[in-house]
């Protein structure tokens, strides 16, 4: 085995263990553990206020944890001598000095970490900020432009790891599509991405793994496919009560979505057979994939204290 591969396999890109943050009585982050591997995009999902940002700030050493630990590249982030050259961080795209130009923001960071000054125009171009936009003061930027600048900022030091908090916020649909491609490409070339979002849809198309947090606790953690498969079959019928009864009789777990569909923890064939046997008319029968993740997300976050095996 080539040596380089062995080193890559030994290194943990991001590893969070039992991370906890208490503010007085309130526990914002409660024993959070997960890890991110090279070549993957991990979606860190949860409703607003679930503890995503606090967790990310603890990973990069801006918030001292009450308990637990976080390692980036096998190291406590705060002990990295020049983190900008190995970890790209975007925590809040609006945390920029309004009176500075976009170009100047990047130049200052490039000087700080020792990145060549040619990286600045290169990255401005890469994230789609025109020369005239780059010379404008950040105070005049839209949130979408700030996100693009923030991504450029994170990529300045050609990092191996990206940690991004809600990077799609404020981006238009074209921008979201662009961001997906960028992150996918980054991961496909061996990079590690951890990105948070409160919108499933943003993460669904890009992520390989999902870590879902609700009220400060991890409620689901696994490969996207596994989590999707676990959500079973979505079925609509003219007589949902009858179908629910019939399914329950043979011991299948059934739940109802807010719009009246049933989610059954079984294959589509099994559900179809039960319906046929009972003479129940089905109007829709699908694997709960696209919409299923949304249901999963809503269920998980509305009952945050229940652990979900994945």
């Amino acid at each position: 085995m080539p040596r380089g591969v062995a080193i890559t396999m030994l290194r943990t890109m991001i590893e969070v263990e039992n991370l906890t943050k208490r503010y007085g009585e309130h526990t914002a982050v409660d024993g959070v553990s997960f890890r991110c591997d090279p070549g993957t995009v991990t979606g860190f999902l949860g409703p607003n206020g679930a503890g995503k940002s606090t967790t990310l700030r603890m990973i990069v050493g801006l918030t001292p944890p009450s308990a637990g630990s976080a390692m980036v590249l096998d190291t406590d982030y705060r002990r990295l001598p020049n983190p900008g050259l190995c970890v790209g961080v975007l925590l809040d795209a609006s945390a920029l000095h309004a009176g500075r130009t976009g170009e100047e923001v990047l130049s200052l960071a490039a000087i700080t970490i020792g990145a060549p000054s040619t990286r600045v125009p290169e990255l401005l171009d890469y994230v789609g900020l025109s020369k005239s936009a780059a010379r404008k003061r950040v105070g005049n930027y839209s949130l979408g432009m700030r996100q693009r600048l923030g991504i450029a900022h994170a990529l300045l030091g050609d990092p191996q790891v990206l940690i991004l908090d809600e990077p799609a916020n404020g981006l238009d649909p074209e921008g979201i599509f662009w961001m997906r491609g960028l992150l996918r490409d980054f991961a496909d070339r061996g990079g590690t991405v951890l990105l948070s979002s409160h919108l499933l849809h943003e993460v669904e198309a890009t992520a390989d793994r999902l870590v879902v947090i609700g009220s400060g606790r991890i409620v689901a953690d696994g490969a996207k496919e596994e989590l999707l498969a676990a959500s079973g079959t979505r079925v609509r019928t003219l007589d949902p009560d009858a179908l629910e009864r019939a399914l329950a009789e043979i011991g299948l777990e059934v739940s109802r979505t807010h719009d009246g569909a049933l989610i059954v923890d079984a294959s589509g064939e099994a559900v179809g057979r039960v319906a046929a046997a009972g003479g129940i008319v089905l109007t829709e029968l699908t694997g709960a994939d696209s919409g299923g993740l949304e249901e999963l997300f809503l269920t998980l976050t509305s009952t945050p204290r229940e652990e979900v095996a994945a």
Partner: peptide, 21 residues
């Protein structure tokens, strides 16, 4: 390309930004 991933240097051996800078 703007995000050419060069072979990763050991993170702990990277030089820290000098005070003058």
């Amino acid at each position: 390309s703007a995000v050419a991933t060069t072979p990763a240097a050991a993170p702990l051996s990277l030089p820290r930004p000098p005070l003058a800078r």
